[in-house]
Design a protein around this nucleic acid. Structure first.
Lengths: 214, 214
DNA sequence: ACCTGAACACCGTTCAAGT
DNA sequence: ACCTGAACACCGTTCAAGT
């Protein structure tokens, strides 16, 4: 009975030219994506502290050193997750309903709500995204996707200004102030620092966050 | 030559009744405070990731298990540092100059500046304070000192409201919105998420953060 | 009382070796 | 090519034992 491995013999160099059926016993096929998915799962169920490269590897049925074939180190895996998180946030903001109620701030209200929903739904991912990681590792993916998310806010502010909201103000100053405000609310909520009962929920978020805007 | 240890013999129970000169060779004396100081130093020089109980113990010349006589675990040491951080913040806010410039927001401006200075000067400590740690471990010291710091903000808002600033608004909603805003600015700056050149410095902080308030 | 040393169960990471 | 196993240098934590 001839085995396709016979054709290879001791010529290890040609291993990567073998057909898939032979390789799949030793090669995972989509290990990188599987590792990312499992790590994201650990992140969201156990928090950043609970993410361990060894545990992730074991969970997907691979040795502890296998991940190093796809990520330079643990931080690079985390930054890949963060970049994906920014993509998810950007997509959520981009597909947010055009506006709630009426008025020049309708779209802004909608974005606020979407942003808060994201942070509340995936607190550990949100905190990872916002950490220094992407910045320090110069992750192009993080930069692009976070700029894409910020672009939504810029668009909303531009629209509001064109409709008479603070027309004379510096646009970027407004955008950053708004971002700082939602981000502040999001982190205070995530970290449990709001006094019991003080945390606005649902529609209240917008009303609450805009107390200063009226 | 009689040694005071002779009086003890094998009665180990009486060890804690020995005079200081005898004990100090084996007892540190103020190990708890020394550990806290060293850990804070590591926190501020190497960040939270760089704080290791073993390293702290070695740095102060004590065995790796010695800290467990004074702290139940690493988290309890960190939460003690966080509580102290809140105390430092409260003291800084309480001793902030009464106001810069004039107007109802003078005191608020002063508090904003003090808060931002604290966060910028001790980023790792600030992030530790704001983490879930104190909340999860039900640290009374964290709660009290953070409420003391928040009390400054409440006072400033009360004063402003009494002088005609947003008199009809819910006080706590204003306070939390303001806190969320400064906190948001602080963390965005600490985590390097502000676009280059976009981070306001010095006096600009106040102007910038209050773009939304005018 | 306060502290030490060995031990246990984890980590991230590297590297020669396997297929 | 992709993956494994042993090894190294760290961790936090516990516990019997020392003083």
């Amino acid at each position: 009975m001839s085995n396709i491995l016979d054709n290879v013999g001791s010529v290890n160099i040609m291993w990567y030219n073998l057909p898939m059926q032979v390789k799949e016993h030793y090669h995972h096929g989509a290990l990188k994506e599987t590792l990312l998915a499992e790590a994201l799962h650990e992140l969201e169920t156990e928090g950043l502290e609970g993410v361990s490269l060894r545990k992730v590897a074991e969970a997907v049925g691979v040795s502890k050193s296998a991940p190093y074939r796809h990520f330079a180190d643990k931080r690079q895996l985390l930054v890949a997750i963060a970049a994906d998180g920014f993509r998810l946030l950007a997509e959520k903001l981009e597909s947010a309903p055009p506006g709630e109620g009426s008025g020049v701030l309708a779209r802004m209200r909608s974005l606020f709500r979407a942003y808060m929903e994201f942070a509340q739904a995936r607190p550990a991912l949100y905190k990872l995204m916002i950490s220094r990681l992407g910045y320090e590792l110069h992750s192009e993916a993080c930069r692009l996707n976070s700029e894409r998310a910020l672009g939504c806010l810029i668009g909303a502010v531009q629209e509001a200004q064109e409709n008479g909201w603070r027309p004379g103000k510096d646009r970027m100053a407004l955008v950053l102030s708004l971002w700082a405000s939602v981000h502040g609310w999001a982190t205070l909520l995530i970290d449990g620092l709001l006094p019991p009962g003080a945390a606005p929920v649902g529609d209240d978020w917008i009303t609450f966050a805009q107390t200063l805007l009226e």
